[in-house]
Amino acid sequence: MKILAMDTSNHPLSVALVEDDQLIAETTLNLAKNHSVYLMPVIEKLMAGASWQPEQLDRIVVAKGPGSYTGIRIAVTTAKTLAATLKIEMVGISSLALIAANVATINPDLLVVPFFDARRGNVFAGGFKYENNRLNNVMPEQHVSFEELLIALKQKAENVVLVGNITDVFKSQLEPFDSSKFKIAPASATVPSAYQLALLGNQETPVVDIDKFIPNYLRVTEAEAQWQKLHPGESKQSYVREV
């Protein structure tokens, strides 16, 4: 089975071609540049290098968020359009699970907690454990302040490994906590690998309705949140209609 996997949910961009769990080609950029400019050229180059034609692809695997809203949409739009137009399978994998997979397999005793900076002291985070040869989500993915996250994690039975970019602010917030309880993964573990993404995606059941597939933003927009506050219970199923 030929898999094309891609992630653009944060600063790094990663694309891989994987066949029967073997890596054929992978490119990861960490330029903090516009994913719209780089994603398709990288896909094109890898496919040409491997002599793969688009029609030969069997499955697209995409990191579906959370992360940067615009970033996630680049890969998800590419993935859902490719899958829809080629009539092939598609799988969406959590962008947090993708990072967790970098350390979880070799640390089965630890609670692996990947996080992405969501600004204003907040993060997108979730808890994962590697059990029964699978990566399992054991703490729901959420948008939460880093401090609240640490307080919640303190209550957990297992030791925790944090996987993400520890800014100076996060570092000072972490200081009061027991350092034997919280480990920090090396920076190399915070970089997503689309090869890893393909392996995770190979274990999952494909999306049934590709048209309805959307990123997992973990947050409604500010405008929507305010409107919902002022108009409780008035939200409609769909606001889009054909004319």
Partner: peptide, 25 residues
């Protein structure tokens, strides 16, 4: 043509992030 106008009416104008989310849907 799939129009999002009913969505943006709620806000009195087009909200860019809301528009992007509708497009991908």
């Amino acid at each position: 043509v799939a129009t999002q106008i009913d969505s943006h009416k709620r806000f009195g104008g087009v909200v860019p992030e809301v528009a992007s989310r509708h497009h991908i849907e």
